[in-house]
Nucleic acid binder design. Structure first.
Lengths: 154, 154
DNA sequence: TCAAAGATGTAGCCGAGGCTACAAATTCAT
DNA sequence: ATGAATTTGTAGCCTCGGCTACATCTTTGA
């Protein structure tokens, strides 16, 4: 029968007062997440092995070296890392700063999840995804909760 | 000087025992997130206004109708929605099922955040992102925490 | 009723992030 | 020191999710 498109829609001119999603920042946002993941891992690799190579990143991320190489080019354009052909990767000042912020936030999220009784492995894995979506306020709430637990245990 | 790539890397044959990220399911995963967002919103729209139109989805998501139209095509391929040219969008059985799962999970996350003292608006917004990264176990921990609070208040 | 407004469709562009295949450079081991 | 193994680079292809521009269909209102 193909009922007309607007049926229950007569009384609505527009603006149907349902919550709008945050103006789909998604695309740009996602590239930020990737950047954070990368600089975080680069920092870890440097700390652990003295250097960060494309192949190491690729293994850590579970992608091919090609994907990593292209992303590193982008991060270089964005001023987060430096790299020379066939040499390993270094963080710039802002790259290091970002990596530290990310690490700290990541740690908070992991600790918080563990404080809820989530198994360490799961907490670690979930935090990977969650950390990029935790606002200032929520992060603060996490910290507060952690502090309370802390006090409780003393 | 260009120090050689491998320097501190001598003692490492491979497998440097740093945690690997979950085999970058990212790409496919992300399209799942999108699918969930869409079916959730479609269900809401149908509940609220009797129908789900491309333009409504576009407004809710803050993207153009073109993006929505293309995504709807994909969801149709995947058997989550049905749509005919110039007609509004319907959920299939599995679409409805997915939308309900998503809604429930979303609700849990929002309630959980609010229970931590996160302002409702922020909780709502953060949940959008977080809900897609919460594992079974973590979700269970959220529920447990909510129940405890519940009991505390009685 | 019929023209204007609104919604939908289509073509084509872009960047991010996947991939394979192959070439070239570097490192390692004999 | 040199050949094999490893690592890096490059070309080219894909999908997804953004977009603009423009065509077409539907709904609405005078």
């Amino acid at each position: 029968m193909l009922r007309p498109v607007a049926k229950a829609a007569k009384s609505r001119k527009r603006d149907l007062a349902l919550p709008h999603h945050n103006p789909r920042r998604t695309r740009e946002e996602h590239s930020h997440e990737t950047a954070q993941d990368y600089v975080e891992i680069i920092a870890e690799l440097i700390a652990a092995t003295g250097e960060a190579r494309v192949i190491d990143l690729a293994r850590r991320l579970g992608v091919t070296h090609v994907t990593v190489a292209r992303t590193i080019q982008r991060l270089q354009r964005e001023g987060l890392v430096t790299s020379l052909p066939y040499r390993s990767i270094f963080l710039t000042g802002s790259g290091r700063k970002l990596s530290e912020e990310s690490r700290s936030r990541h740690e908070t999220v992991v600790d918080f999840l563990k404080s809820l009784g989530v198994p360490a492995v799961v907490a670690q894995s979930d935090a990977e995804g969650i950390e990029h979506h935790v606002s200032r306020e929520t992060l603060k709430a996490f910290v507060k909760h952690l502090r309370k637990k802390e006090r409780g245990r003393k």
